[in-house]
Simulated assay, not measured.
Amino acid sequence: MEFVGKSKETIKIKEYAEKIANSDSPILIYGETGTGKEVLVDYIHKVGNRRNRPLVVQNCAAVPANLLESILFGTTKGAFTEATDKKGLFEVADDGIIYLDELNSMPIELQGKILRVLEDGMVRRIGGLTEIKVDVRVIASVNTEPFECVNKGFLRRDLFYRLNVFYLKLPELKDRKEDIKELCEYFIKYYNEKFKKHVKGISNEVVEIFYRYDWPGNIRELKNVLESVMNFKDGGVITIEDVPEHLIVNEKGLAEMIEEFEKSKIAEALSLNDYNISNAAKYLKIPRQTLQYKIKKYGL
């Protein structure tokens, strides 16, 4: 996926990413789940001087803590039962970039070994006696505010300050809604190619609905919504009939909610007064002519 968007926030992040892309210093990224942290890392790799070298990605929350150390640092034959001589991800990423996603999920004791790699560029495989020199740029991300991670003991303070040479914060989609239309165009093109479809775009009405929705799942939620829609649509334009119901319900404005309430109360008054308009008008404390107009308006 490309780092898509033309909002002021996105342009600012892109410009900053391009300025730091050629440095060897570590980067710390903070962003809520679904904001595109891995996409940003891929962009930094693509525009930087390590673009032709490996980009190795590891989600620290995706594997059990007791396996993460061997995955990152490798193993030596005989270190434990069935252990073999095997490179860890830091060795695999030599001359390139390693991206540690959800670093705040990594055990504190293992974070100390990450700090040592940052300080002297040396790794030691589990069970090994020799140290191996690696030239790896480390990019790490957290999905909780960094100082909160430190204060709650999820992130070592010394590791935080070592990583925080360059800091990037990815805003939630609700704070960069100017990017929604371009993101939709990108995902529609992507799923057209993937599903062999011919969808041309989205209607202005759907654009407005998307703009009013808060997207708690961020870009990932938008992508999933469009994937769902395009599984059922072969061509044409995406309209309100194609949009998941929860987006429609959540985007109702105050005027629409007031009208629904008014309609229900008028229906209730008519029922209680055996559909006698004069008595229903007295019950609602409004003129008879006003009630007749509203009955016609709401088709009651």
Rank of each mutant, 00 (worst) to 15 (best):
residue 11 I to V: 15
residue 14 K to P: 00
residue 19 K to Q: 14
residue 19 K to I: 15
residue 21 A to P: 09
residue 29 I to W: 12
residue 34 G to Q: 03
residue 39 V to M: 07
residue 40 L to Q: 12
residue 44 I to A: 01
residue 45 H to T: 06
residue 48 G to P: 09
residue 55 L to A: 05
residue 56 V to G: 06
residue 59 N to S: 14
residue 59 N to Y: 01
residue 62 A to D: 08
residue 69 E to A: 11
residue 71 I to E: 14
residue 73 F to Y: 13
residue 76 T to W: 00
residue 78 G to N: 09
residue 79 A to C: 05
residue 80 F to I: 09
residue 81 T to K: 07
residue 82 E to S: 12
residue 86 K to S: 13
residue 87 K to M: 15
residue 89 L to E: 08
residue 89 L to R: 11
residue 91 E to H: 08
residue 98 I to W: 08
residue 100 L to W: 10
residue 104 N to D: 15
residue 114 I to L: 07
residue 125 R to D: 10
residue 125 R to I: 08
residue 128 G to W: 02
residue 128 G to I: 01
residue 130 T to W: 09
residue 134 V to I: 02
residue 143 N to Q: 10
residue 144 T to D: 07
residue 144 T to L: 09
residue 145 E to V: 14
residue 147 F to S: 13
residue 152 K to F: 06
residue 158 D to W: 03
residue 163 L to E: 11
residue 165 V to A: 12
residue 177 K to T: 00
residue 182 E to W: 05
residue 182 E to Q: 11
residue 184 C to M: 05
residue 186 Y to Q: 02
residue 190 Y to W: 03
residue 196 K to L: 13
residue 197 K to N: 07
residue 198 H to I: 01
residue 199 V to F: 01
residue 202 I to C: 06
residue 205 E to L: 00
residue 206 V to T: 02
residue 215 W to D: 05
residue 219 I to W: 03
residue 219 I to N: 04
residue 221 E to I: 10
residue 224 N to C: 10
residue 227 E to T: 12
residue 229 V to Q: 00
residue 237 V to T: 14
residue 238 I to N: 03
residue 245 E to F: 15
residue 245 E to L: 15
residue 247 L to T: 08
residue 248 I to K: 15
residue 250 N to R: 14
residue 252 K to I: 10
residue 254 L to T: 02
residue 261 F to D: 06
residue 268 E to M: 13
residue 269 A to Q: 05
residue 269 A to P: 05
residue 271 S to T: 12
residue 272 L to H: 07
residue 276 N to K: 07
residue 282 K to V: 12
residue 285 K to Q: 14
residue 289 Q to T: 15
residue 290 T to W: 06
residue 292 Q to T: 14
residue 295 I to Y: 06
